[in-house]
Amino acid sequence: MNPDSYLYLSAILFSLGALGVLIRRDAIVVFMCIELMLNAANLAFVTFSRMHGRLDGQIFAFFTMVVAAAEVVVGLAIIITVFRTRRSASVDDANLLKY
């Protein structure tokens, strides 16, 4: 199996995720896209680990997963608090910190 295909997949997933972060309005969807980007990165790590025959990439994938989990906890807490006060989960509505 050509490992390059995994890299292409990883790139496509990352782009989709980035696009989603930039375009989607709902906070939960943005979060899911961020998760998509992180997982794409994980895929790339693992693929490179396989390509170079070293374990570094796979170890690092664990780090990424932990960070992702922690970030989800904090992020979801923020979103729920914002939703409770504003009755809206749209990222565009939380725009008071401006000039």
Binding site: V91, D92, N95
Partner: peptide, 12 residues
């Protein structure tokens, strides 16, 4: 300072 428009997506 108008760059600081409060929109998360533009920051992203």
């Amino acid at each position: 300072r108008r760059l600081q428009n409060g929109f998360v997506r533009s920051y992203a």
